[in-house]
């Protein structure tokens, strides 16, 4: 049983107009096997939270803590965080020219596990995971994300999540831009990792659509860099019916 704990997190970015605070005190605790959904309007800081957990250099933590089983995540470099068991499924995965998927997956798996995966079982694992996510076998020979469609990139993010078996995964709007079939395939992947590896999940989304396939125990509404309200799945239903207006009105006042 692991715990990812975020306490009173304040995060700023540098802009041309100076430093701008995006997260204004976020507190959130996720345990193994739990699924938390973070919902909120555009610009509320959801993706900033995701990138900050992964350690993107653009985001400066000004105060607060992130710990993974009492280890200080903020002290870790980006790769150390991944090796500690954190995974970010990115909203916009980059294309990495000249590096094949096969080479990339094996290199990453070796780095995360601290030893090279066994050749025969690894190839089989990769093939099997690709099949389940309906990713064409041909993708293994292509360069990382190069020429992949938006939906293909998202599936490949989930492929990595299934293969690397992180303790906690942050899914940054993985559902956006997916058609209904792709959404189901991706959701199945998350549910598999959840049930097979007892993965803790932080599901960041703008829409309630994905919650038809992945059921969160906890829903957090993010507004203006803070958690404005927390609840169970019923909170998502209410957002589906009424939108974010209820939260935005006081924030703008």
């Amino acid at each position: 049983m692991s715990t990812l704990a975020i306490k009173d997190l304040h995060v700023s970015i540098e802009t041309e107009q100076g430093s701008k605070e995006i997260l204004k005190g976020v507190t959130l605790t996720i345990k193994s096997g739990e699924i938390h959904a973070i919902m909120g309007p555009n610009g509320s800081g959801k993706s900033t939270l995701a990138s900050t957990i992964a350690g993107h250099p653009r985001y400066k933590v000004t105060s607060g803590t992130i710990t993974l089983d009492d280890e200080d995540v903020l002290e870790m470099s980006v790769d150390e965080r991944a090796r500690a068991g954190l995974f970010l499924a990115m909203q916009y995965p980059v294309e990495v020219p000249g590096v094949t998927m096969t080479n990339f997956l094996r290199t990453a798996k070796t780095a995360i596990d601290g030893e090279a995966p066994k050749l025969r079982t690894w190839a089989k694992d990769v093939r099997g995971a690709m099949e389940k996510l309906k990713i064409d076998a041909d993708f293994a020979n292509r360069n990382v994300n190069e020429g992949f469609s938006g939906g293909e990139k998202k599936r490949v993010e989930i492929l990595q999540m299934e293969l690397f078996k992180p303790k906690f995964a942050v899914l940054d709007e993985t559902d956006s831009g997916l058609d209904i079939d792709a959404l189901r395939v991706v959701s199945d992947g998350v549910n598999r990792a959840h049930s097979e590896n007892d993965m803790g999940t932080l599901l960041i989304t703008h829409y309630t659509r994905i919650l038809n396939y992945i059921t969160p125990q906890f829903v957090h509404v993010f507004v203006d860099g803070r958690v404005a309200e927390q609840g169970g799945p019923e909170l998502a239903d209410e957002l589906e019916a009424n939108g974010y207006d209820r939260f935005l009105a006081p924030a703008q006042a």
């Binding site: 992964a54 350690g55 993107h56 250099p57 470099s77 980006v78 790769d79 965080r81 991944a82 090796r83 970010l88 990115m90 995965p93 980059v94 990495v96 020219p97 000249g98 590096v99 094949t100 080479n103 990339f104 290199t107 990453a108 780095a111 995360i112 360069n143 990382v144 990595q160 690397f164």
Partner: peptide, 23 residues
Amino acid sequence: HLFYLMARGIPEKEARQLVVRGF
């Protein structure tokens, strides 16, 4: 590119080499 590869656990030096050699 570097952030993407490092976010998958690959150390910085290895990530740089991967990109340039691959190219």
